[in-house]
């Protein structure tokens, strides 16, 4: 497939700290790509570099084959960026904010009106269009920022937490819109809402300390975890000695506890029975076994140690 965005050894520093460490990857045209990672992993910085808000210290970013630094003006038309925090002019209405942006991109008035009407109705924003930005909730501001970014019809949409501050219905509308844009536009986003990512993704890139540590579809990423399960045993009382004893069982992976609940990962159910055997006569109140999801994969323990 044709590449929409290509990064070649892109690096970004902040004083002595490395924010992005020589990133190299491509994003296919018309796909939805999610970046996930811990806080401070460099996700938002990466989006700002892709949007052209900041230049990388080294390496190159290409948008549809054009260097983002050398052909900045040509590339601006192709990108729509939605930052995390609302950044609209608080004294202008939502509609005026969107229209001003369209005018800056050289879009004619009637086209701007049509696009505002189309996307606002899909995001249920119509009633708020003539309200000043400072009198609208953050959720609606976030939705209007999406409309604002779409007014000049970009081919690449870059979103920092697309559904931040939104209620369930708004999140659903936003995802319906974004999924509807698939194929027509490339959607690149950062989110901490892993359930949304599991439902919406084409491809997921896991960032850690400015590097891509995992890259692929959710199924591919979870491939290595297929045999793994998360076990959870709630004891009536879980003394420290018992916790230490259970944690020391060889095939118990990344054990943890919360009050009297003992959590661990294991490749087979055999290890679960082994834990039950070691627990002996200690009274248990509840048991739970579940297959691993993206959240488990993102667990910092796993990111460091891996599953094996």
């Amino acid at each position: 497939m044709e590449a929409s965005v290509t990064l070649k050894k892109v690096g970004k520093l902040f004083r002595d700290k490395t924010i992005l460490a020589g990133l190299t990857f491509g994003v296919e045209k018309g796909s939805i790509v999610a970046f996930v990672g811990d806080n401070d992993a460099g996700k938002s910085t990466l989006l700002r570099v892709l949007a052209g808000l900041e230049n990388p210290e080294y390496g190159s970013v290409f948008i549809h084959g054009m260097d983002i630094v050398k052909r900045r003006k040509d590339i601006r038309h192709m990108i729509g960026y939605i930052p995390l925090e609302p950044d609209m002019d608080p004294w202008l209405t939502l509609e005026q904010n969107m229209r001003f942006n369209g005018l800056l991109y050289g879009v004619d008035n009637s086209t701007i009106s049509n696009r505002i009407a189309e996307y606002s109705s899909r995001l249920d924003l119509f009633d708020f269009l003539h309200h000043p930005a400072n009198s609208v909730s953050y959720g609606n501001l976030k939705k209007s920022m999406i409309v604002r970014a779409l007014v000049h019809d970009p081919t690449i949409l870059i979103l920092d937490e697309p559904t931040a501050f939104m209620d369930a219905q708004s999140s659903r509308q936003t995802w319906d819109l974004l999924k509807g844009l698939r194929r027509e536009k490339t959607v690149i986003y950062v989110s901490q809402k892993l359930l949304e990512i599991e439902q919406a993704h084409d491809r997921i890139l896991v960032l850690n300390k400015g590097k891509v540590i995992l890259d692929g579809s959710l199924d591919k990423l979870l491939e290595s975890t297929l045999e793994f399960h998360q076990f959870q045993i709630e004891f009536e009382e879980l003394p420290d000695e018992l916790y230490q004893k259970l944690s020391a069982i060889p095939r118990v992976v990344t054990p943890s506890r919360m009050n009297n609940i003992f959590y661990f990962y294991g490749r087979s159910r055999k290890v679960f029975f082994q834990v039950l055997k070691e627990a002996g006569d200690t009274l248990m109140e509840d048991l739970d076994i579940k297959k691993l999801g993206l959240r488990d994969l993102m667990d910092s323990e796993f990111a460091r140690k891996g599953l094996d």
Partner: peptide, 18 residues
């Protein structure tokens, strides 16, 4: 104000104008 608080002006800088 807008530059320090990363408001509207930052978004304007993304437009295809010098």
């Amino acid at each position: 104000d807008f530059r320090i608080h990363k408001k509207a002006i930052m978004y304007m800088t993304l437009a295809p104008i010098s």
